[in-house]
């Protein structure tokens, strides 16, 4: 088989300007729903090796972010971005020099939270952001037009628009690997099983048992973040076991779904418009020559 045959499969999708314009409008078969999957990240056993970051970049062929020294502990990635879908965070909680006291490192591998009711998916006007058959939040790169509304909507600051292709990007939860029955690259690479992948219900049970275990060993501050819905936000398909406040890890203390206020906002908008029209009607009725 020649290289050319490898590059052009027999069932090559139609190409050309017409196909480019009409392609996104063609109906496609929706895959059958599968068992919902997700990540459970136990931060108490993260060692900050960044193997997850490297594995993610390697599998997803994400370009380098350049060599930049942030001066912020070992965190030179700094934030999730269009080219960094995993971000290991480092928190140094040490006593001052010359003093005694408890000290510790906190480390956490951050990623898209794959919210059950994702504001980004709700916002997306093109339908590029979908829940795939594994109930993961997935951006279809051939549909996204880079409007950036998902970026504005995300309360976790996950999604970023790439300067390379102008589209929004984030973790796919290794959709391609999952379809082939493989574990996402980050979870596969994690040497301590801090990042665990699997059916979301199983992960939640496992995580709750782990919290109980930690508490029985004296880590009373252990708790789960995002395993259950709150009044203002859905549960997350990528949830965390934490031992300090969420904000310490760069997570919102109490995430809020912006869509909860949409109806009231529309009513106030309508009121503003109607108030103007009523003024016109009154004035013009009274003062029309």
């Amino acid at each position: 088989m020649t290289t050319r045959e490898l590059e052009v499969p027999a069932t090559a999708p139609p190409s050309g300007p017409v196909a480019t314009i009409l392609g996104p409008f063609l109906p496609v078969d929706r895959p059958e729903p599968r068992t919902p999957t997700g990540f459970y990240t136990d931060t108490t056993i993260c060692i900050g090796c960044k193997a997850c970051e490297v594995a993610c970049k390697q599998w997803n062929q994400l370009p380098s972010d350049g060599m930049h020294w942030s001066g912020d502990s070992y965190d030179n990635t700094e934030s999730l971005s269009a080219t960094s879908w995993r971000h290991v965070k480092f928190i140094e909680q040490f006593a001052s020099a010359g003093t005694q006291g408890p000290s510790r490192w906190l480390m956490m591998s951050d990623v898209c939270k794959h919210c059950t009711a994702a504001p980004c998916q709700h916002a997306c006007p093109t339908g590029a952001i979908i829940y795939n058959e594994f109930s993961n939040v997935y951006i279809q790169p051939d549909i996204c037009n880079g409007c950036a509304y998902c970026i504005a909507a995300c309360p976790f600051g996950v999604i970023t628009r790439s300067n390379l292709d102008g589209h929004a990007h984030k973790c796919t939860l290794c959709y391609d690997r999952q379809r082939d029955g493989l574990v996402p690259a980050c979870a596969k690479a994690c040497p301590t099983a801090s990042i665990q992948f699997g059916p979301i219900d199983e992960l939640r049970d496992r995580a709750r048992r782990r919290v109980e275990e930690l508490k029985s060993r004296g880590t009373s501050s252990a708790y789960l973040y995002g395993d259950a819905p709150t009044e203002n936000y859905s549960n997350l398909h990528s949830f965390y076991l934490l031992v300090d406040r969420p904000s310490t890890y760069g997570l919102p203390e109490s995430p809020f779904n912006p869509w909860l206020r949409m109806r009231g906002d529309y009513l106030r908008s309508l009121f503003g418009g109607l108030a103007g029209i009523v003024v016109l009607l009154i004035v013009w009725t009274l003062r029309m020559p």
């Binding site: 909680q93 006593a95 950036a148």
Partner: peptide, 28 residues
């Protein structure tokens, strides 16, 4: 929400707490 662990004079005990979590969209 659990109480944060008491630590004396931490170097960056607050971690990422002082950073804004959200990203501004590319709208100007």
């Amino acid at each position: 929400m659990p109480n944060p662990v008491e630590l004396p004079s931490p170097m960056n005990a607050a971690g990422y707490a002082t950073r804004r979590v959200t990203k501004p969209p590319n709208w100007h």
